[in-house]
Amino acid sequence: MDTLFDVLSWICIVLGSVTCLIGAIGLLRLPDVFARMHGAGMIDTMGMGMILLGLMFQAGPTLVTVKLIFIVVFIVFTSPTATHALARAALQGGVEPQVDGELEDSSSAGPGGDGAP
């Protein structure tokens, strides 16, 4: 049973590390601020979640796991708020998001919800 949890834990930690690495490469490769937020979002969601999930498998059912869950919940609630605040600040600070096309409103997105600025 212990080996099973060990294997699960290492799979999660390796997956999380790889996700973080890809996110950081995205942070370097993507061309503008708004695009880079998607790379940072990978680190904030799946990288963080997977690494801390792996640590939970290592810790077992103890108070340590509870604290790890607190950290995950906290980051999941705060990271989109911080990203949104940053995006709004960038928008009002004069950074125009570069656009490569238009989304034609063929789907049922909602009445009158089209018209990108």
């Binding site: 490469i25 969601t45 909602g110």
Partner: peptide
């Protein structure tokens, strides 16, 4: 989130970087 992560990872690791940035509005119901 897991599905979206896989998609974004594929885009980032692609040597041609096939991104297509879009800005649009959605209604919040």
């Amino acid at each position: 989130i897991i599905k979206a992560n896989l998609d974004v990872a594929k885009v980032i690791l692609d040597p041609k970087l096939p991104i297509q940035r879009l800005v649009f509005r959605v209604k919040a119901g």
